[in-house]
């Protein structure tokens, strides 16, 4: 009986593994390709690279800042075909973390071949996922991007040091998914005359420019405000200024 049990369990395991493999198959076939959205980080004007642990001067507030953490969510990526139909990538949640190399490349497999004229993406995490319980992957609470005491995702986390801050440091935890405090922003990109060509089994690249200096586009310098830890009007201004400052750069096929 015990032997039968073990061998039967083995068959179950083997069969379930093979059936799972079929379900989870993500290898691009000839009918789909991969899009890689490359988030290039620049400071202020587009010629200065933005890196952690690098002293930077803000072009508008003149604050001197050295970032030690910069993380943000991008989600719900869609592509529009020339015929007006959309391809929506299911369950696409990406955590860009400047301390994790490679996280700035958002890889989207299984995009049907064709010519795409537009892209849509959401900065932040949609309200549904903020109230959906324990998540995994980019949305896992162990990424330290979820408020423990006031449920919801920290959608942008910027921390570092600055001589202009009274405390010598700054920490902006920006989020909010409800009512007037909702920071979640959907951005559209038109590929401006070009189109994104998806070829079977190949990878096409969309290059974006992300400028963290935009956080202070219309917000007070660090001497006035060096910390935000919860949703609210000031968090919304900072987050949406940052989100709206993200620019499409070019397509690379």
């Amino acid at each position: 009986m015990k032997n039968l049990f073990i061998s039967a369990a083995f068959v179950v395991a083997a069969l379930s593994m093979s059936s799972c493999k079929k379900d989870d198959d993500t290898t691009p076939t000839s009918t789909t390709g991969t899009v890689e959205i490359n988030m290039a980080h620049r400071w202020g004007n587009s010629t200065t690279n933005f890196l952690l642990n690098m002293e930077l001067v803000h072009p508008m507030t003149n604050d001197t800042l050295t970032f030690t953490t910069f993380k943000y969510y991008v989600s719900n990526i869609k592509f529009k075909k020339a015929d007006g139909t959309w391809y929506t990538h299911p369950e696409s949640y990406f955590l860009v973390d400047l301390s994790t190399s490679g996280s700035e490349i958002l890889s989207i497999p299984n995009v049907p071949i064709g010519e795409y004229t537009d892209m849509e993406y959401t900065m932040g995490v949609d309200s549904l996922q903020n109230v959906a319980g324990a998540q995994t992957g980019a949305l896992a609470v162990s990424n330290n991007m979820f408020w423990s005491w006031n449920s919801g995702y920290i959608m942008v986390k910027a921390e570092g040091t600055s001589p202009n801050s009274g405390s010598g440091s700054f920490a902006f935890h920006l989020g909010g998914f409800m009512g007037t405090n909702n920071v979640v922003t959907t951005n559209s990109v038109n590929f401006i005359g070009n189109s994104l060509t998806i070829t079977g089994g190949k990878t096409s690249e969309v290059h974006m420019i992300v400028n963290p200096a935009k956080l202070w586009h219309s917000s007070a310098p660090l001497a006035t405000s060096s910390s935000i830890m919860m949703p609210g009007a000031t968090a919304k201004t900072m987050a949406t200024d940052f989100y709206n400052g993200i620019m499409f750069d070019h397509i690379h096929e």
Binding site: G133, N144, N150, S151
Partner: peptide
């Protein structure tokens, strides 16, 4: 402040005046 029974435990585990632990460490 906590909107879901599944994310509840994250609060006492990480609160510095309660269990004062990180989720990564627990895992």
């Amino acid at each position: 402040g906590i909107n879901h029974i599944e994310t509840f435990s994250f609060a006492p585990i990480t609160n510095p005046i309660e269990m004062h632990e990180t989720m990564s460490n627990v895992v």
